[in-house]
Write a protein that binds this DNA or RNA. Structure first.
Lengths: 173, 173
DNA sequence: CGATAATCGTTATTGGTCATATCAAATAGT
DNA sequence: ACTATTTGATATGACCAATAACGATTATCG
């Protein structure tokens, strides 16, 4: 079933494509009517997010990286020389909760904390060689398994449109 | 692995643009490069979901209903005579965790558990009059404040397209 | 300079969500 | 009857999110 991205802006009818008999009145799940729940954007957002995260974790089992850990490694790699506060706040992680997370990553020798010379309060974060290797493998797994499958299900154009709208929500909402 | 800046297919972008110079190379947040994070669908999904939920809760402060509570009331209303297992599993809530939730709703006299005559193990769930009243007010708040604002930010056509894609993800992914 | 305020990483703690195992009561299957 | 399954419930543990507070360090400015 293809998602009609360019479907005419028929707001009142969300156009649940043509597979159901004409009298099908409402979305169901296991014989239970979903009511206006299927029109609630937040509900669909959460369900979709859980599924996507599940698949991400599944694709990462060999490397044992959670979505949060992956994003941390990615950010440290792209922003060498940043301290914990900067990396954490960028990801919406509170500083106290970031400590245990870094303990884990540093314990696996994927990154290191180095006392800054300029400001000896702060810890500069850097990836180790092992961290860079794992990150590279993780990126490949994400691209070839996770995102590739998203592309299959959604189609490239829809995937791009979805990404843009989600970014809009996170930015302007 | 380039971040395609506005390849943007048919979706009309809700007015934001024109602030970045034409050579803007990469998404940033507080001077920190996001790297391929801005291309990760799961990441954007989570950030967007958190924002939308925040707004939902904000719109519901007067009624004190969480997204989960709202969806439970909605489902009970649309499916009278169902028991806890059926309602919970439809929402992806585990039965043990559903108990405390119902305790809360029943304590506020929004719904009741009634022993089933057919199967005296199960509890039939029904809304009270107060529950129906609150639900009606909640629906109105969601429509006029929450979803209305989503419509403003995304535009009606985009909102419908987004909803359809999220449903696709939750269904076929 | 020196006192005060602010920042950084950290610890402790609390509250919330999610998941598993288990239980008594009731039912279903044989 | 005997066993297995189901329903609601309890307890518990893992994991996040959020706040307050502390020692060490740096910044402010009188």
């Amino acid at each position: 079933m293809t998602v009609s991205r360019t479907a005419d802006p028929n707001v009142s009818k969300p156009a649940r494509a043509a597979r159901e008999p004409a009298d099908a009145p409402e979305a169901e799940a296991g014989g239970i009517r979903m009511g206006e729940l299927s029109e609630l954007l937040g509900y669909s957002l959460k369900r979709a997010q859980l599924r996507v995260f599940d698949d991400f974790i599944r694709c990462m089992t060999s490397l044992n990286l959670t979505p949060a850990q992956f994003s941390v490694l990615l950010l440290i790699d792209r922003n060498p020389g940043r301290n914990q506060t900067e990396i954490a706040s960028t990801l919406g992680i509170l500083r106290p909760n970031f400590v245990a997370m870094l303990d884990g990553l540093e314990g696996r020798e994927l990154c290191v904390r180095v006392r800054s010379a300029n400001d000896r309060r702060s810890h500069i974060l850097m990836l180790t060689d092992k961290g860079r290797t794992i990150l590279a493998r993780a990126k490949k797994l994400v691209a070839t398994r996770h995102e590739a499958r998203l592309n299959e299900v959604l189609g490239p154009a829809n995937r791009a449109a979805l990404l843009e709208m989600l970014a809009t929500l996170a930015r302007d909402f």
